[in-house]
Design a protein around this nucleic acid. Structure first.
Length: 427
RNA sequence: GGAGAGGUGGCUGAGUGGUCGAAAGCAGCGGUUUGCUAAACCGUCGUAGGGCCCUAAAGCUCUACCGAGGGUUCGAAUCCCUCCCUCUCCGCCA
């Protein structure tokens, strides 16, 4: 979201840059709304000034014992006009606010222009997809055979797009969470936080999920509690309505949370297996930075996420999303895509974004650096990584001809085992 | 869940219908004094949105904001209602 003054002053430039991501900014609508709002505001405010002056006068006259009934009547009438104007202004404000809130972030100049995922650009590739001397199984078959992944019972207990992990499957998921958190906190300088898994609507507005994407979320009935779709929401909002000290930046936080998504509109996509779930586990990386350091920090955050894949020996590539494929709030996004034999393709496992001040303006997260007015912070986040998809990548990429799965070396201390044998036992 | 207390500027804390955007203190900032440090003294010190001005800044001015949202009133930090949050006690509970 934008602040009005900035938006007004840079209207044409913003419109041009938004056009690169396929968003048509209705400049005339803005001008009309802005003028209308200012006119109503100015009138209401001058009436209020008048009322204040009159009230003061009444106060003085009454102290002198003068009868003020007539004046009071007059001010009452002013008051009535004010409240009608006020409701007009707040209606316009609301219209304005929701219009502004529906405008996506402006892409950074380094972002390639394009209309969809086919225009994304691969910036680097790591590792080689494994060559199998046998027909590799997809994770849903492997998981069922090893009795470590149980989708039918998940459907019974809850519904489609949920999973039950058993035995080695559950342990593998837990090991991955611990592994990721340990690497990020010990090697990459992040501070671990464990936030609430439910968030309120103000937080969802702050990070940009609301008002536009309510249909993607689960909401607890009759409350203002929503299931967090990503730790980005509670963690970024930790500093909502706060002013940070510039010397304390960048702040780097990581958090494990389950994530809940309604996946409305994704019917028919990724229906097999656990690539797309209503609930999945994720370790998230979040950074708060000064404006001048956010792009350098985006590179580091992306490298921190890549490091997990490298340590696990999972082949992946990193792509920079083009203007047309970026998320609503992002100014620049790298996606990490891991190789999945069942798809015979690379699939997203992490998304690392710099939101610049877009979220910070919505959430009012500012930075004070010595003198002068506080500026908005820049916020960044990325998956480090999506645990469920990492689980899938390990199972599929490390499967053996006998149906067993080798545990990546980095993970062995966490499982105290080298492989999942063909019967699903950790050995 | 029940009973009670409370939420005021960066912090502490006055203020129960009329120049209150808000006393005082602390912190901050600018300055004076001082051989240095410390102290003392003087000044300054909230945020947001408009208008004037207009290249911009500064300046002037108006409006709003004392947890949030409504209401009463000529006029609300002060009175009423709803909600949120914090604290104390009781109950329940992992």
């Amino acid at each position: 979201m934008y602040d009005l003054a900035y938006f007004r002053a840079n209207l044409e430039t913003i419109a041009e840059r938004l056009a690169t991501r396929g968003f048509k900014l209705d400049v005339d609508h803005f001008r009309a709304l802005d003028a209308k709002r200012r006119a109503a505001l100015t009138e209401a405010e001058s009436l209020k000034a008048q009322r204040n002056a009159e009230s003061m006068e009444i106060s003085k006259l009454r102290k002198q014992g003068v009868d003020t009934t007539e004046r009071q009547q007059k001010v009452r009438e002013i008051g009535e006009r004010i409240s009608s104007l006020d409701s007009q202004v707040s209606q316009l404000d609301e219209e304005f606010r929701s219009w502004l809130a529906g405008i996506p972030n402006v892409p950074h100049e380094s972002v390639p222009t394009g209309s969809g995922s086919e225009d994304n650009v691969v910036v680097r590739t790591w590792g080689e997809p494994p060559k199998f001397s046998f027909e590799p199984k997809p994770h849903w078959d492997l998981g069922a055979d090893l009795k470590i992944l149980d989708l039918p019972r998940a459907a019974k207990v809850t519904g489609a797009r949920f999973a039950v992990y058993w035995g080695a499957g559950a342990k593998l998921e837990r090991a991955l969470i611990n592994f990721m958190l340990d690497i990020h906190t010990r090697e990459h300088g992040y501070t671990e936080v464990l936030p609430p898994f439910l968030v309120n609507s103000a937080s969802l507005f702050g990070t940009g999920q609301l008002p536009k994407f309510a249909q993607d979320l689960f909401r607890c009935e009759n409350t203002d509690f929503w299931l967090a779709p990503t730790a980005e929401v509670p963690v970024t909002n930790l500093y909502r309505d706060e002013t940070l000290d510039a010397d304390s930046l960048p702040i780097s936080l990581c958090a494990y949370t389950p994530c809940f998504r309604s996946e409305a509109g994704s019917y028919g996509r990724d229906v097999r297996g656990i690539i797309r779930q209503h609930q999945f586990q994720k370790v998230e990386l979040v950074k708060f930075t000064r404006a001048d350091q956010s792009y350098e920090q985006l590179e580091r955050l992306t490298a921190d996420a890549e490091d997990i894949l490298i340590r696990l020996g999972l082949p992946f590539r990193t792509v920079v999303l083009c203007t047309g494929d970026m998320g609503f709030s992002s100014a620049k996004t790298y996606d990490l895509e891991v190789w999945l034999p069942s798809q015979n393709d690379y699939r997203e496992i992490s998304s690392c974004s710099n939101f610049e001040a877009f979220q910070a303006r919505r959430a009012s997260i500012r930075v004070r650096s010595g003198k002068g007015k506080p500026e908005y912070a820049h916020t960044l986040n990325g998956s480090g990584l999506a645990v469920g998809r990492t689980w899938v990548a390990i199972i599929e990429n490390y499967q053996q001809a006998d149906g067993s799965v080798v545990i990546p070396e980095a993970l062995r201390p966490y499982l105290n085992a080298e492989r999942i044998d063909p019967k699903g036992a950790l050995v």
